[in-house]
């Protein structure tokens, strides 16, 4: 990250005063970044410019001004360097007519892998994301969470050194979230560069301690999460959990550590107030697994990031 003591030899991703306009709308404004190895979270509210910045870094769109480099190269010109880059887009678009296996096969064959190696990798990644049973089903019939997993698999299956993950946990159930978070941390520990975007602070916080905050196309703050969290005004975070047995879940959660309030709303969701969102998110999958409870979806109702933005922009 910028200012994190990374010299130009260690930098894998650089953006120098990069900007992007769409007509009169400024999506990204004068961003300068240097990212070395490890996991870095790119945080910002919806529409902050995260996806546009990702697309510029991955060579999918041209900056209106400034330069972006990965391994010191412009990926758009040096396409061979995509062998060392993985990209998981935010968009849900997939070739729905293909099966999960065919999709991964094509992605790996286009990377230049031979058939035997392709098959080995496809099997490994299908198993890693628990998609073996759905391997021969068309992507059009995949759930949102399964689509996220197959997008992640195609971004990682060729062992890239730099991985861009744009909102990778969207639509995943709590168990898959935990597995994906563990995987991202593992990639960082292996010395790879993982730039991961999200609009949920606790989500990113569970993957890394290094973050870049972006708002309205500008880099607002960067550094260790703890430093930025210190600036958040103290108030509980509210999370809604969708479950087929909301009352049982609510009864279970009352009195748990970091849970300061529980109620069931009109949509039959369990609304939980927590005084420590990160600890709550970390503990939740274990509680659910140990007690046979099922949660279909988690939604953060008051985005604590808003408080950070408010604080920082008012400074």
């Amino acid at each position: 990250m910028k200012g994190a003591g990374i010299d130009s030899n260690q930098a894998r991703i650089t953006a120098d005063r990069v900007g992007k306009w769409f007509g009169e709308v400024i999506a990204v404004n004068n961003c300068t970044l240097t990212v070395g190895t490890g996991v870095v979270g790119l945080l910002g509210a919806n529409g902050a410019g995260k996806s546009t910045l990702f697309k510029m870094l991955a060579g999918l769109i041209e900056p209106s001004h400034g330069t972006v480099r990965v391994f010191g190269r412009r990926l758009r010109d040096d396409v061979g360097w995509y062998r060392r880059v993985g990209f998981c887009p935010e968009s849900d678009a997939l070739p729905d007519w293909m099966t999960g296996r065919e999709f991964l096969e094509l992605m790996l064959r286009l990377m230049g892998f031979e058939k035997a190696e392709t098959n080995r990798r496809v099997d490994y990644w299908l198993q890693r994301f628990e998609l073996e049973a759905a391997a021969n089903r068309r992507l059009g019939g995949y759930s949102k969470g399964m689509r996220q997993k197959i997008k992640l698999a195609q971004a990682m299956a060729h062992d890239p050194d730099v991985i861009f993950l744009d909102e990778p946990l969207n639509g995943m159930d709590p168990v898959s979230r935990k597995q994906s978070i563990d995987l991202v941390r593992e990639l960082g520990e292996q010395g790879r560069t993982v730039l991961v975007s999200s609009h949920i602070l606790p989500e990113v916080e569970s993957m890394t301690s290094n973050i870049i905050l972006i708002d309205r196309g500008r880099v607002l703050a960067e550094g260790a999460v703890a430093e930025i969290r210190d600036k958040i005004p103290e108030h509980p975070t509210t999370v809604a959990l969708a479950s087929s047995a909301p009352r049982a879940l609510a009864g279970f959660l009352i009195g748990r550590e970091h849970v300061v309030g529980v109620q069931v709303d009109q949509e039959n969701r369990v609304v939980v107030s927590t005084d420590h969102a990160v600890a709550f998110y970390r503990a939740l999958p274990g509680w659910l697994l140990d007690n046979g409870l099922v949660v279909d979806e988690i939604v953060t109702l008051d985005d604590s990031l808003e408080a950070v933005f408010q604080y920082l922009t008012e400074r």
Partner: peptide, 11 residues
């Protein structure tokens, strides 16, 4: 948007 998967290959 599905072109993104082929655009991010070394092709």
């Amino acid at each position: 948007g599905t072109i993104v998967f082929t655009w991010t290959r070394p092709v």
